[in-house]
Design a binder for these strands. Sequence first.
DNA 1: TTGCGTGCAAAGGTTTTGCATGGCA
DNA 2: TGCCATGCAAAACCTTTGCACGCAA
Lengths: 139, 139
Amino acid sequence: MDIKTKYNTKQKQEILNFLESKGPGHFTVADLDMYFKTKGIKVGTTTIYRQLDKLISEGVVKKYNIDETSSACYEYIGQSDANGCQQMFHLKCEKCGKIIHLECHEVTLFEEHIAEHHGFKVDPMRTVFYGICKDCAAL
Amino acid sequence: MDIKTKYNTKQKQEILNFLESKGPGHFTVADLDMYFKTKGIKVGTTTIYRQLDKLISEGVVKKYNIDETSSACYEYIGQSDANGCQQMFHLKCEKCGKIIHLECHEVTLFEEHIAEHHGFKVDPMRTVFYGICKDCAAL
DNA sequence: TTGCGTGCAAAGGTTTTGCATGGCA
DNA sequence: TGCCATGCAAAACCTTTGCACGCAA
């Protein structure tokens, strides 16, 4: 859980390259796996899991379980703090699967309310709101 | 997905007994499994899954994926509608794993804000807030 | 009798672990 | 050289599915 990277290996670089080239957005271990296979880069699935664990410990990557059944979702945060989606909640549409970033002052107020009146410190990074998005509601 | 119960079997009754005796709260398939094993009641794990699926179709039970890694969470809603935690959000403490029911007018206001300003209709049943609870924060 | 329900076993998929090898510092 | 990282295989898990038998109606 708290193991950090000590060596810089080729595999770690390849994973970071993927994260940089892809930019913000969500991905799964399977995505990385397929990406490496397509590119002909040799990185074992085990290594992907282990490197992601380390990147999570370092705060570079965040992990969600957005989907109910399938595999876990990861997100690249990057070295930059307080920007990115550090303070951001996510909305996920249950119909189209789209993930929306929620940037809104009301959210901060809501967070403060929960902290003050319910004694619960919400972690925005790990919290996902499920529901129906504008586009799907219009159908 | 839409298969409903046609027969009343001993196993279904045992599952309903468990739900009634336990009352509101969350449980996993493993909980049911262990409960039956302890009591010496013979109900196969497969049957638990299949009966729960049917109860979900009937709206008697709700299913979440509150935990990241481990198994799915189920909740007994009962025949009564609009009560239970139909309209309720859940808070989950990332440290102690406790699940807290959030009953609060502010939440409704927040939901309305998201609907009006972001065009997103939140589904409270499926949304879980992650964070640190009062007790764990005090440690 | 009809056909759903059950349960065992096996498969499916994701994630973790053991262990020997390989590579960074 | 020392120790971490890698990767294969296998295990651990949770969940679903196939199939024959049992049981409710």
